[in-house]
Amino acid sequence: AEETGLRVELAEEDDGKKNSIAMRLWVEDPKKLKGKPKDNGAIEFSFDINKENPDDVAQEMIDSGFFQECDSKTVAKSIRDRVALIKWRRERCQQVNV
């Protein structure tokens, strides 16, 4: 996710069971964004990794003024990459347990 200039991490321990998980997103390199982000710090939010769409969260962040419309794809990609990693880790854990 570093190419996007944004960083997304878990804001809580992943127990492997919960669908809705707390995540934290912040700007690591503002130069990689097209628009100017609101200089706010880390944005914490909860996200349902099975039901929700990263594009929707990205749009809500834009609506809330954290990012500009031109960066919607970048924000969505950062969240999508992190969600993919969480899912991959969970699948791997299940395989190990089996």
């Binding site: 991490e9 880390a42 909860s46 809500e60 609506d63």
Partner: peptide, 27 residues
């Protein structure tokens, strides 16, 4: 640090807090 809360009309809550120094990338 202090945290602020923004609630989107769709219902999602965003809690904004300062990024801890230790999490910032090394120059």
């Amino acid at each position: 640090g202090s945290a602020t809360q923004v609630v989107h009309s769709a219902g999602r809550r965003f809690i904004v807090s300062p990024v801890p120094e230790s999490r910032l990338r090394e120059p």
